[in-house]
Simulated assay, not measured.
Amino acid sequence: MLRPSLALTLGIAALASAKQAPLPFSQPEALLTYPSDILPAAASKELLYLHRHLVEIESITENELEVGKWLASYLESKNFTVEMQEVSPKRFNILAYWGKTSKTPVLVSSHIDTVPPFWPYKYNHTSGIISGRGSVDAKGSVAAQIIALLSLQEDLPHSAVSLLFVVGEETGGDGMRYFSTNAPHSYDAVIFGEPTEGKLVCGHKGMLAFTVKVQGKAAHSGYPWLGVSANDVLAEALDNIIKLRQHLPWSEKYGNTTINIGRVEGGVAANVVAETAKAQFAVRLAAGTPTVIKGMIVGALQGVKSRVEGLGGGLEIEWGSEGYPPVDINCDVKGFDKITVNYGTDIPNLEGIHKRYLYGPGSIFVAHSDHEALKVEELETAVIDYKKLILAALEKQKRM
């Protein structure tokens, strides 16, 4: 259920006054008239202020409360109506809009959680490079989206666009899935923010996660025939998965389907035959469906499974979620370079029939790393480009 107002939701009516007040725009009228390729100094100053505060607040998935509280306060100070949607205890999505209704034709969205570990905010004034965890993925998008919409405040009816900032995108999308179930209505277009190098994305690969768990029998390493080594069985399973990679479906648009062996663990000591072992995998689908890929994985491991079961052990495949196939995304707005990407997003987690756009500042190649960073000019360009996307989405909605 959507909970209106920050104060009623968390009982922190004094939050805005307790925090440092956001810097106001000194010349709001400048935002309405600036050339399409130049961001005014006042808007740039506000953009950097907002981005810095978002990045300075650690918000690793499951710990998004503080950044959500600050962001809600900031949006309220800009005359947005703010609703906080409780996804789980102390974890809230932020839905913001002007006026009394959240039923807008266009939704602009990104996520406020990050991967670990936390890296502090740094700004090199000489190079114009900003670094820190989330500076790119995806607080750069969050800040640019907000400033873009503020720049359109006087040009659009209050019921035209709403903002949604979700939790949990980095670990499966529970924030967006919860919003999808409780969304106020369907949308005509949704603009998603992720690092895309300032290009418009025409699609991204699908996703499937799974874990292989092996049960063996412990024994002294001097007498390995008295046990069943789970590590040996897992090694055989890994070899079969590696061979399977050469036979996975592919497409001209997305390239090859890939399987990454993300984590492997097993056994307790070098002198003990391993009783248990497991490995975690991530599949990026370039073609086909999760059902097809699951069938291929089961087939590749069937012989290993039968052999270990014959020895008194076991092999189990645990699927992380239903997964999803490749995601085609609208890229029909002129003036943008176009790309496809290999990473997953919240796009498939929001149900409904609507135009879907994916764009954001910064590169995915530095996201999730210890050198996550982007240039100020990338943030400023993103504000201008988000404004273009919002206006294009509203124009297309008028024609429907």
Rank of each mutant, 00 (worst) to 15 (best):
S5W: 08
L10H: 14
G11I: 07
A13Y: 07
A13V: 02
A18N: 10
P35M: 05
K45D: 13
V55Q: 02
E58H: 03
S73A: 12
L75T: 01
E76K: 14
K78S: 09
K78F: 13
E83V: 04
K90L: 11
R91E: 05
F92D: 00
L95Y: 01
Y97S: 07
W98Y: 12
H111P: 03
V115E: 05
Y123D: 13
N124Q: 11
T126E: 13
S131G: 15
R133Q: 09
R133Y: 02
V136L: 06
D137N: 01
A138D: 02
A148S: 09
S151W: 15
V161P: 00
L163I: 01
L163M: 03
F165N: 01
V167S: 02
T171F: 12
R177N: 05
R177P: 06
V190G: 04
F192W: 02
G198I: 13
G206E: 15
L208I: 07
F210H: 10
H220W: 05
V233E: 09
E236K: 06
A237Y: 04
L238W: 01
W250M: 13
K253A: 13
I259H: 04
G267H: 13
A270V: 05
N271R: 02
V273M: 00
A274I: 13
A279M: 04
V283P: 02
R284S: 11
L285K: 09
M296T: 10
G299N: 12
Q302P: 01
K305C: 04
E309K: 06
G312A: 14
G313R: 05
P326L: 15
K334D: 15
I339Q: 09
T340E: 00
V341I: 14
G344Q: 07
I347P: 01
Y359E: 12
G362S: 09
I364V: 06
A367M: 05
E372R: 07
K375Q: 14
K388N: 06
R399I: 08
